[in-house]
């Protein structure tokens, strides 16, 4: 019955991609869900994908059981500072980072399983006024943080057992860096988006700041999600959380932009707008807040985002089209949309701790 009610609505005339409900888990602790992610976990010689859920005061690890069920393996208790984000480390096993803070990130902590003494642990990675953080390949983490005088952009590496190795500093731009993305296929390149709508490019090996390129003020608060280099151009997937349905032509939710890093000139390649006709949220007094996008995630050519209406929209970024729409469930609105570390699996979360896994 639940599966039937949660069957996503496909929009007319689009390709036949759809979302199939595969399994569901629910944290019965009664705390509000803050984030969800996946992590590769190695146990007894085999590697499997596990789900990590976060509420304000704890983070839980879930393993797949028989018949599409999930069982909680362990819960890390975090103390007084609220968890605000899970930071997955790509292509690593048995390690995941979390960001803690009030309105902004004040601390990053590593959660891990230590086979040395067969125990689950947590250890501090970094504290400060942290503006952005991203897990990179090869057990590395990049973050930007601000002091009164300056900005620090730092990479921390972890050993397999979770010990922090020497950090590396990247040359900071003048503006605050608000998001990072690795450049796929270029192991030494990293991009970031700044508070004044610029794209910056670093050489990770040397720490050099190679280029700063302006995105344009007509698309405020751009956040980079993905970057790749092809034919001498740098393609960057940007999202615009303030996109509005009513301005769908001029204010898309996601854009793919091609930059020529040599000249800093750019051109739009593809635009993905909010799904038409998906009405906004009704508020007391009968006013309708237009549909906009609250938060989203990009993996390969797929983007997913929670809309203010409580639905989740999925786009094919290469087609520039919305391919599936997951309406709010019977238990309430969706609040989280994340792609799993494996291909084609969407994690959709509700505030009450319910997480549904959809095959896309």
């Amino acid at each position: 019955n639940v599966a039937e009610q949660l069957t996503p609505v496909l929009l007319d005339g689009l390709r036949e991609e759809s979302l199939q409900l595969v399994s569901k888990l629910k944290d019965s602790s009664g705390s509000c869900a803050v984030d969800v992610s996946t992590v590769w976990w190695e146990a007894a010689g085999s590697r499997e994908l596990r789900v990590v859920t976060a509420c304000e005061s704890s983070v839980s690890l879930w393993k797949p059981l028989a018949s599409d069920r999930w069982g909680k393996v362990y819960t890390w208790q975090l103390g007084e500072i609220p968890v605000i984000q899970i930071v997955p480390l790509l292509d690593t096993c048995n390690l995941v980072c979390i960001a803690l803070g009030d309105l902004e990130i004040g601390e990053i902590r590593l959660l891990l399983y230590s086979s040395e003494n067969d125990s689950f642990k947590q250890s501090p990675v970094k504290t400060g006024n942290i503006k952005a953080v991203l897990g990179l390949k090869d057990r590395r983490l990049v973050s930007s943080s601000r002091t009164v005088q300056e900005q620090q952009v730092e990479i921390v590496s972890f050993s397999e057992t979770g010990r922090s190795k020497d950090g590396q500093t990247l040359m900071p731009p003048e503006e605050t860096v608000l998001a990072f993305a690795e450049v796929e296929g270029m192991s030494d390149a990293l991009v970031g988006t700044t508070a004044v709508n610029s794209i910056v490019v670093w050489n990770l090996k040397t720490g050099q700041l190679l280029k700063k390129m302006h995105v344009g003020y007509s698309y405020p608060a751009s956040i980079c999600h993905r970057a790749y280099s092809d034919s001498g151009l740098l393609f960057v997937v940007l999202s615009h959380p303030h996109a509005k349905e009513s301005e769908s032509c001029g204010n898309p939710a996601f854009r793919v932009i091609a930059f020529n890093p040599k000249t800093a000139r750019s051109t739009g390649v593809m635009f993905s707008s909010l799904p038409p006709g998906h009405a906004g949220r009704q508020v007391p007094g009968g006013l309708c807040v237009p549909a906009s996008y609250l938060e989203g995630d990009v993996k390969d050519a797929s983007a997913a985002a929670v809309l203010t209406s409580g639905a989740i929209a999925v786009w094919d970024l290469l087609l520039g089209q919305c391919t599936a729409l997951l309406p709010p469930g019977p238990a309430g609105s969706w609040v989280l949309a994340r792609w799993a570390a494996t291909s084609a699996c969407l994690l959709a979360g509700q505030r009450d701790g319910t997480v549904c896994l959809y095959r896309y």
Partner: peptide
């Protein structure tokens, strides 16, 4: 995208910018 829109394109942009940028 044409070269006229974006200016001269180099396949080795990363290496060239790394050679030019202050370290």
């Amino acid at each position: 995208c044409s070269e006229s829109d974006l200016g001269p394109i180099s396949l080795n942009w990363f290496e060239e910018l790394s050679a030019e940028a202050p370290s």
